[in-house]
Design a protein around this nucleic acid. Structure first.
Lengths: 343, 343
DNA sequence: CTGAAAGCGCTTACAG
DNA sequence: CTGAAAGCGCTTACAG
């Protein structure tokens, strides 16, 4: 630092006490004579003293920081959860180190290494794959860790997620109730529990109505993005074409809606399009997307609180049960499903 | 830590060398005998040694971390810039501590304090107010700092911004060229340079065409959100009502478009609505928002690179000129402006 | 109630 | 080329 920061020694010297005493007032210990405390406080103010958290971390073995590893930052979902996570953590004096594997799950181990070398006390992970062994080991080792949005398929560790099976089920049931029979699905990688679960719910709802699951109706997002028009045309050109498309993400729903409209079709008259997430734009007058709502902010907050709780438990030597919260989804009916129910 | 991490001492013991030597191989010093280096490397691997960055930071006085302070995380703009900032920083072994003042600029000093106590080596700030004295002092003190998106009105410090004056000017000129004469503006707090500059560009374009600036046509976002319908009705009920609304943000444009449509008006037939930012949704078939594009990813990357450069310069005792990059905006004409030019 | 001392896990002159 | 020692800025038993 150019203008070198004052240290506790400087404060001690100025206040005419020992460094230990400075430390004691800093940490609000009880046994400090009021006048001494005042002298120290005054010296701190004069020098604009700021304790060096790095030094503190080293000796206390607590860094007061956690790591947040996100999946696709482009998805507004993550921005919103990140916001509440940061707020909660800052409120408890913790800072959050942001890391992103952005569509490169292979980078996760590196991310974790960087984070752990920075001595983070815990991790909030929004980007696990169902069968990530590195993360599974981390959890098994007892390192404080909470997943949100996505989980491991072993169901181990702490997490805050949505009941995605039910979400997929609800939406499919709704579509079926409206009379749709051929429901196509636009989904992301099945290695993410979110997509796997939503698809599971979809399949279950179909089964209950005695409708066969048709893999021709399942479109992977990656093949869709490779050539949007081609993918949609292929779908619509099936012998038995879909009358609805259930996109497993609002963001995907918006895209597919765009493609469909560009092909000259009407939504929902020619084909219904529904999503999942209820992002802010879903409710726009020009969009009116039928979708599944989840509490993003809440999810972030709960994840942060759960992690902080685990960290504290660990520091105090308490053992604590993993937090496992499953939030319930909510069906939001708007216009794109072709429902007679208008808002 | 429960399963206590191995230290450099453990590695040294196992490899039969001194801690100094371990440190030397860790830092890739030249003068280490190859066979000794191998022994050390091997011991590290066996113990799964990870250097403790906190200890390292303390002695080297370099934390290898920077702080990123964001404004509204809800705005996708920040998510996208954050992403590229994190990528660049991680690429150089730096981690980024995320902080948010979310619509509470009064929290900025606290944020900065927390960040600095964590010994961040520099700051990327996307949330400055034009006349923030705390930040101004920080910059004046020579602490590595780069602004993006918004700047101080003294123009001091390093920054990467868009030419917002020109952006505001371009859009207004476009609207005027289309024949609009009464252009209302929906704008955010003038304490942010972005809004002030965009408005300035708007006013300049008007002036050039000999059109008087009418403060009745300027709607503050805060009064708009207090009661959307009322605010828009007031605007449309003016003796001389606007034929276009220039929202200073796409996000605002989408909202105002929503309100206008809900009032039963058509966009652009009854009133044009244009935005600023070119977020992903602006191009949606159902939206087709005319707007101003800026390079978000680039902005993030340039800001990160500028900061890292400053940090390095400082560490090497070099003095370095502030980085001042002004990116040029681009007009994206779609449908909401009532332009005869269709995409 | 307070101070001197040891130590957190590293790096880096200083000797050799 | 390598080791012993000091020290980064704190906290925390240990005495008193």
């Amino acid at each position: 630092m150019v203008n070198v920061m004052p240290t506790a020694r400087d404060v001690a010297k100025r206040a005419g006490v020992s460094q230990s005493t400075v430390s004691r007032v800093l940490n609000n210990y009880v046994h400090v004579r009021p006048d001494v405390r005042d002298r120290v406080l005054h010296a701190m103010k004069e020098l604009q003293y700021q304790p060096n958290e790095v030094a503190r971390s080293l000796v206390t073995q607590r860094s007061r920081s956690i790591g947040l590893v996100l999946g696709e930052t482009s998805n507004p979902f993550f921005a919103e959860t990140a916001k509440s996570i940061v707020e909660v953590c800052q409120g408890f004096g913790y800072c959050v180190i942001l890391s992103t594997t952005d569509s490169r799950p292979d980078l996760l181990p590196d991310s974790l290494r960087l984070l752990r070398s920075q001595q983070v006390e815990g991790l909030i992970i929004g980007a696990v794959e169902k069968d990530d062994s590195v993360v599974a080991e981390l959890v098994a080792s007892g390192f404080p860790c909470v997943f949100y949005n996505r989980v491991l398929n072993t169901n181990s560790g702490s997490y805050v997620i949505l009941n995605n099976v039910r979400g997929g089920h609800m939406m499919t049931e709704h579509l079926l109730g409206l009379g749709h029979r051929r429901i196509a699905v636009l989904t992301g990688p099945q290695k993410f529990s979110t997509f796997a679960h939503r698809l599971e719910g979809y399949a279950a709802a179909l089964r209950e109505q005695g409708i066969a699951f048709d893999s021709q109706l399942v479109l992977q997002y990656s093949v869709y993005t490779a050539d949007r028009t081609k993918a949609i045309k292929r779908l619509l050109g099936l012998k038995n074409p879909p009358d609805a498309i259930f996109a497993m993400t609002d963001s995907m729903a918006l895209e597919v809606m765009d493609t469909v409209l560009q092909l000259g079709l009407r939504v929902p008259e020619d084909i219904a399009v529904v999503g999942f997430d209820d992002i802010a734009l879903a409710s726009h007058h020009r969009i009116c997307l039928t979708t599944i709502a989840q509490h993003r902010q809440l999810m972030g907050r709960l994840a942060a609180e759960a992690l902080l709780e685990q960290i504290n438990a660990r520091a105090e030597g308490r053992t604590v049960q993993p937090t496992r919260i499953v939030l319930e989804p909510q069906l939001v009916i708007r216009h794109t499903c072709g429902s007679p129910i208008q808002r």
